[in-house]
Design a protein around this nucleic acid. Structure first.
Length: 496
RNA sequence: GUGGCUAUGGUGUAAUGGUUAACACAGCGGGUUGUGGUCCCGUUAAUAUGGGUUCGAUUCCCAUUAGCCACCCCA
């Protein structure tokens, strides 16, 4: 999608901006408010960030609804944490070595001298809140979910933004593997609710007790083959050896085939718990594969880790009740946002995770809380939406105007106001344009909004105490009593 | 952070080292009074930014910026 207008304003602004250019010469601190304005150009969205335009909103509404209903259904309470946190929170949680902390955080020093960061992920802040608010005193487990923007200073790509949105479910205070299974099932269910088939990749990363053992095994194995590893993996060997298992370079992929499996070196407790999780997943009928090479990027994970990926065979679902084209057969153009997105070619989604998570039994303690087991997952909303589009899953358009109120003259306007209010109270999606005078313009507006009905009130109707109801599809009109207008309208809309 | 490709009105495209940069869609205004979608007419609006080569650059070259793709990593 090309970026919107930069140029037209550029010229126009050139003169206006001229005086400012004096300031450019002066030395200005980059962070200060009077940093130089890029001369003559319209301000642009920051790199890797995007506006969510009206015509996109139905996707978001749809997804938010699904999230809420999942949360309500399984007893998760919403929590909102600040977008800004102390940088140290993420350093402690995700690990100093992690890429996210090393190079992907939007960090800066605020005016008070504190080192703060735009949150790159949601788990650490929620864990922080759990400790801060003494949630360990609540009945355990504590089940929370969050939704909101996350920030990563990365190079933007398809399905990858500097500001993206994630929701996540977290459970604190319960080490039972059934929790792991519940969360995995929820992640899978979310996509299922959207009409997207996914498979879960799962593995165990063990615990501090057994991890050193298999880490040593794996290091020993790869060390003997060091010369055949890619450059990145050589680096990983010292930094984070387990991640070598995750490498996609063909040479390394071949090597790791024969590498020792973590699963074979877990201690009894960890192995047992993994088995229990798998058993529950079988019961829940969640399709999964045990992926011995799955390793995740944050240091805080222990035992269960998982990722949700698109299933190989995606059956294109039958068209939903509300197809892409406007449900009611206007032949005309739909200037209203919703008709347009159909043109967007569904892009194939690269093979990336649609979501992931795992257990983090030591994080709370690491952050200074009382030892508390925990488990959770996060899912990227942009990626979910991209996937919906790629599979041509159209969310219902529940915001379209149903009735347009057209008016002729001031007296009529007053009546329209009153009717507007009554309809709104009856939960009808109603619109009007009181500033237009000509009926023609108002009908045009009604048409563009995709209204099913237009209620017309002119001089004549005011005198007669009636309303003229026009069916926008058929063009049929009928006169109804003003006092029965709301009733008639709801009836025609198929409400009762 | 590394590498590759790309950049023309709001959108999708066209064209050219040389006079007014073309077309479609959308937008706006008309086609007499209280009737939309079709049709007709009119109109707004672009060579990403900065340098260079040249008599002359939107076109060729370089840089910057942004987008896309691959890598890194991730949602």
């Amino acid at each position: 999608m090309p970026s919107p207008a930069k140029k037209p304003a550029a010229k126009r602004d050139a003169k206006a901006a001229a005086p400012k250019s004096k300031a450019v010469g002066k030395e200005v601190r980059p962070g200060s408010a009077d940093a130089p304005v890029r001369s003559g150009s319209t301000p642009q969205v920051p790199r890797g960030m995007k506006d969510i335009l009206p015509q996109e909103q139905r996707y978001w509404r749809h997804i938010y609804k699904k999230i809420e209903s999942l949360a309500r259904g399984y007893g998760y309470e919403r929590i909102d944490t600040p977008i800004l946190e102390e940088t140290s929170l993420f350093v402690r949680a995700a690990g100093k070595q992690s890429d996210i902390v090393e190079k992907e955080m939007f960090s800066f020093i605020d005016k008070g001298g504190d080192n703060v960061s735009l949150r790159p992920e949601g788990t650490a802040p929620v864990a922080r809140a759990y400790i801060n608010h003494g949630m360990l005193a609540m009945p355990q487990p504590v089940k929370l979910y969050y939704v909101g923007p996350m920030f990563r200073y990365e190079r933007p790509q398809h399905g990858r933004y500097r500001q993206h949105h994630q929701f996540g479910f977290e459970v604190f205070g319960d080490s039972n593997p059934v929790i792991d299974a519940e969360l995995i099932m929820l992640a899978h269910q979310f996509y299922k609710d959207l009409g997207i088939k996914t498979t879960v990749h799962i593995n165990s990363l063990g615990c501090p007790n057994c991890r050193p053992n298999f880490t040593a095994e794996i290091v020993a194995y790869f060390r003997s083959k060091r010369s055949q590893l890619c450059e990145d993996c050589k680096r990983r060997m010292t930094k984070n050896p387990l991640r070598v298992l995750d490498c996609k370079v063909p040479g390394c992929v071949a090597l790791k085939e024969a590498a020792p499996h973590i699963v074979d070196h877990l201690d009894d407790d960890c192995k047992n718990k993994l088995m229990r999780v798998l058993e529950f997943l079988d019961d829940l009928q969640v399709p999964y594969v045990l992926d011995p090479h799955l390793v995740r990027g944050f240091d805080y994970y222990t035992r269960t880790v998982f990722e949700v990926v698109l299933s190989d065979e995606q059956v294109i679902p039958a068209p939903l009740p509300v197809p892409a084209a406007p449900a009611h057969g206007h032949r005309g153009h739909q200037a209203v946002p919703e008709a347009q997105p159909v043109q967007e070619v569904p892009q194939p989604m690269p093979a990336v995770a649609l979501g992931g998570g795992g257990r983090y039994d030591n994080l709370i303690e690491q952050m200074g809380g009382r030892p508390t087991p925990a488990c959770g997952f996060g899912i990227g909303l942009e990626r979910a939406i991209l996937q919906m589009k790629a599979l041509q899953i159209d969310p219902p358009d529940d915001n379209r105007t149903e009735v347009f109120l057209a008016q002729l003259g001031d007296q009529a306007r007053r009546k329209v106001f009153a009717l507007f209010d009554e309809l709104r109270a009856a939960d009808v999606r109603v619109a009007a344009n009181l500033s237009k005078n000509a009926l023609k313009g108002q009908l045009e507006a009604a048409n563009k909004m995709g209204a099913k009905l237009t209620a017309i009130i002119g001089q004549k109707e005011v005198l007669d105490g009636t309303v003229l109801l026009r069916d926008m599809e058929s063009g049929m009109q009928e006169i109804v009593d003003y006092n029965k207008a709301v009733l008639e309208i709801t009836k025609k809309l198929g409400r009762e």
